[in-house]
Design a protein around this nucleic acid. Sequence first.
DNA 1: AGCGTCAGAATTGTATACAGCCTAGATACA
DNA 2: TGTATCTAGGCTGTATACAATTCTGACGCT
Lengths: 254, 254
Amino acid sequence: MRASPEGPSSQTVNALLKLREFILGGEIKAGERMSELLLVERLGVSRTPVRAALVRLEQEGLLRALPSGGFVVDAFNERDIHAAIEIRGTLEGLAARLAAERGVAQAHLEDLKHCLAGLDELVLESGVTVDSFSAYVELNEQFHRIIVDLADSAVLSRQIARAVSLPFASASAFVMVQARLPEAQTMFTVAQDHHRCIVRAIEAREGQRAEALMREHARLARRNLELALGNREMRGLVPGSNLITFLSHAAARN
Amino acid sequence: MRASPEGPSSQTVNALLKLREFILGGEIKAGERMSELLLVERLGVSRTPVRAALVRLEQEGLLRALPSGGFVVDAFNERDIHAAIEIRGTLEGLAARLAAERGVAQAHLEDLKHCLAGLDELVLESGVTVDSFSAYVELNEQFHRIIVDLADSAVLSRQIARAVSLPFASASAFVMVQARLPEAQTMFTVAQDHHRCIVRAIEAREGQRAEALMREHARLARRNLELALGNREMRGLVPGSNLITFLSHAAARN
DNA sequence: AGCGTCAGAATTGTATACAGCCTAGATACA
DNA sequence: TGTATCTAGGCTGTATACAATTCTGACGCT
């Protein structure tokens, strides 16, 4: 009873994907309790895979376990997003530093430069348009993935994977916002210069510099967030915005 | 059928504790597969709580999920320990910086200073003896816990909790080793000076300094590790040493 | 001798029944 | 009218039976 003709192979994965979609799509709101029996009805699978998926979503940080049992959808505020961004920048910075200090094989460096060239073409030549948007996201995530891989540490990879599992913490979380800002071209240009300098720093084994650049690079996300908070429409472009209680912008300091 | 008169309230927690003990105690070796039915026999609970415990242990990093299903006990090497220590230092450093930059309430600062005074008494006056050993570990962990709390971020707290869930990554992982080194008194003195300076930096809102100190503080663990690798006996004092494949010391460079 | 294929066994994934706990609602009392 | 207690319903924790897959080993073929 495991495999279906098409679609996810296991019921647990099936439930996990659907539940994540429900939560991120706003069908299940923040603070709401995840009743297992209700989810069984909505998902069409039994309680066992539902429970497995709930545990996984808790570890992702989307759910919070109640002391009395069961789970509720977790809520986040602006400070949580700041923290998540800083955590990502800090850990990716650590990865970049370790890669630089340890030195990386030429072949791996070529992969990174190839990725960089692809981004160059998009950002500098054609510009990031609506069409090339998903291509940018793809390349950007690939770039960050390679950096993490270059650190060559399973322990660190796992930690970073967990850090970016929050929807608004990933490297491309605010790209959608960034593209619609008046400063879009500037932001993309600066981000790409970060990329370029990070590669150079790693190649030159300048660990401290690679780390600092990676941190500053992550803070672009924070700037995008703050620029987005002005427009009410732009908030909807932030991944997982359903889970976020936006404070009034003036009051949200630090 | 939930609560027993004494002992852990749930079978899942029960299984979790016992399994962790088995793995860390070496009753189940690294690389070994965790057969659910076997564990059912050894633990005296049914498969459901066993499975729940296995998933949790995977998230802790002690187990690794096989693509074909099931789990094996994960193995670590010296580089993994280095990475885990750097991750802890980096994240605790972030916590210290955030606390410093944001500023902390006087009451919370008092808790920290109280903890510091307790450590002072142990380290400077009486010295860390076998008797006062567990008291030191207790206070040391309390100190680190307070720093994390001062950052006042649930997202960061969770991330750090995950980072220190690996047995050899916690703040007190190498204290047992440290106490038996010839340089013991020096190490404890330096560590305590780190503590003191970190408190001052946070109080003075010197974020950068607090962060750098916290990182350097974590690196004491690495020095302890390297000092311990000489003696074969001392290796046994490293928590989770069963999971670690010690390379020959000369070959183990970064 | 080596490799591919096929059956059996072991193991995990899934569904479901049962038992105990938490909570909300109602009722009785002050 | 407010509060405390009790009761019923729903919910989660646990156990277990069943289904499907993966792995192991042997057999047969080339």
